[in-house]
Nucleic acid binder design. Structure first.
Lengths: 141, 141
DNA sequence: CTACTTGCAAAGCATTTGCCGGATG
DNA sequence: CATCCGGCAAATGCTTTGCAAGTAG
């Protein structure tokens, strides 16, 4: 969490912006939460501390969070963007069940290895990668 | 192309729907085209044959195409869904340049192998997978 | 004090739905 | 001739922007 706060601070400074209680609250709520939050999820969580918070502020802060390198966007093809913490999570794949819509993840070091090798072969400088696997989960199968 | 037409026919039949010149034209245009078409791209291409075509019909037919198993959705985080042919293309990764926005792909048999192994470990029945790598391309690097 | 932030309301954008004349089998 | 199709216009749902009052440094 320290690392993330520092990244956020640095990004805010770098863009000549200011911190605020709302931004801090949104960031901390995001960091405390489970994975795969939508803007709406986060909005409702923050609303408990800031009843007057608006979607606007949540969206704007999420943008800052992504720009800071703290989080990244994931997409499960249901029309909603979700956000997840990035740091130290480079080795995981997302599983999305096409029957119940639930998703979970799995870690495997080879995901990073494979992405890095492919990128190198293409003369591409990789910053980030996503592996999503769609199918039927244990419960639905 | 034969294989895809058959899949489409079967899906149409199965749902008790009818074929039409527009649907055939949209499907054939899609199949003839390059990869990674947005609905808008396809709309403009089909408009050359059917000046009165509407977005609606393109969207509805794209849905049928995806349902038939002919194509799948890819997402480059720019707010637009893109569609690409599915058959025989299980071994590729997408590279998206975060500077110029261009994208290309690379084939590697290990992508499928890795996805299948991970899914097996999770008791998950995989139907489909996506590997997207974001970063800086050769030109922009 | 100046510039940034907030949150409401309104706009924007890709996509979907309602409707009804028109086509298909 | 019952049912599905096609395309316009309107609606939808997520996300962004404009604006005027409020706040940070």
């Amino acid at each position: 969490m320290e690392k993330e706060l520092e990244l956020f601070e640095r990004h805010i400074q770098h863009k000549g912006l200011k911190r605020s209680n709302q931004r801090d609250c949104i960031l901390k709520t995001f960091l405390k939460s489970e994975r795969h939050l939508s803007a709406e999820d986060l909005f409702h969580m923050v609303k408990q501390d800031y009843p007057h918070i608006g979607y606007t502020t949540v969206y704007r802060t999420l943008r800052l969070i992504v720009e800071s390198g703290i989080a990244e966007v994931v997409d499960f093809d249901d029309g909603v963007k979700r956000f997840e913490r990035k740091l130290g999570r480079e080795y995981h794949a997302h599983f999305i069940c096409s029957h119940c819509g639930n998703h979970f993840e799995a870690f495997d070091v080879n995901i990073k290895t494979l992405s890095s090798r492919l990128a190198k072969e293409q003369g591409f400088l990789p910053q980030n990668h996503r592996l999503e696997i769609f199918g039927i989960c244990k419960k639905c199968g």
